[in-house]
């Protein structure tokens, strides 16, 4: 998606219609052909699809470690990810479009992560939560993958060990902006699956 058009939200339709009203000098009886002006809006197909996508992310929580516990807080009652349209947690990658990598990915786990990512349907996004998932964190160690971006393309990195739930929400909002603006994702487009099973 590469649309740069202005996004017009359908919820703002009353505002839009009143704006249309005043600018066109519309008054008096309503012609049957002008009915559309009272409730319709104009936008690009790309934008409306992006709007739908960003507000209906279905996350797959890949919680492996401590960050997984903080992710529970993000989903939990106080921080409530549902407010951002991403509450339908799916544990099947085939039903989700946002992979939340929350926790350390070890060398042993890497082939599993790749397989999960490949099973997800397009368009798909990846959020790397915490220092371990982003870079290996303070585990510069023989059995820890030094960042999940070694094997899958990551869209948003959230720093912290573990990040606060606010930071994760911020990361999700950033991703939503990214989806809405249709920003190019070369890391995703140029990604080649590692030579794994």
């Amino acid at each position: 998606m590469s649309s740069n058009s202005q996004t017009i939200s359908p919820v703002a339709s009353p505002v839009t219609s009143s704006h249309v009203k005043s600018s066109s000098g519309y008054s008096g009886t309503q012609d049957i052909n002008d009915m559309s002006r009272s409730f319709a809006l104009t936008t690009k197909l790309d934008s409306i699809i992006a709007w739908g996508r960003k507000n209906a992310l279905w996350p797959m929580p890949y919680g492996t470690a401590c960050c997984g516990i903080e992710l529970m807080s993000v989903m939990g009652p106080r921080y409530d990810l549902a407010r951002f349209g991403a509450e339908v947690v799916r544990f099947s990658p085939r039903q989700s479009d946002l992979l939340l990598v929350a926790g350390t990915i070890t060398e042993k786990m890497a082939p599993v992560l790749i397989r999960i990512y490949r099973q997800m349907l397009e368009p798909k996004y990846v959020l790397s939560m915490g220092a371990c998932a982003s870079s290996g964190g303070f585990y510069r160690a023989y059995h820890v993958l030094q960042g999940c971006d070694k094997v899958i393309p990551v869209d948003v990195y959230v720093p912290g060990c573990p990040p606060t739930p606010e930071a994760v929400l911020d990361g999700i909002m950033l991703l939503q902006k990214m989806i809405a603006s249709g920003q190019p994702r070369p890391w995703r487009d140029n990604w080649k699956a590692p030579d794994h099973d």
């Binding site: 060398e107 042993k108 082939p111 510069r140 023989y142 059995h143 030094q146 590692p194 794994h196 099973d197």
Partner: peptide, 27 residues
């Protein structure tokens, strides 16, 4: 038990460097 099945060597031996990673390509 803990390291992956393609891992060669015994990591807690003193002569194994702490940051020498070995990649795992298959489950």
């Amino acid at each position: 038990l803990l390291t992956h099945h393609q891992f060669v060597g015994h990591p807690l031996r003193k002569d194994y460097e702490a940051d020498r990673q070995q990649h795992c390509t298959q489950s």
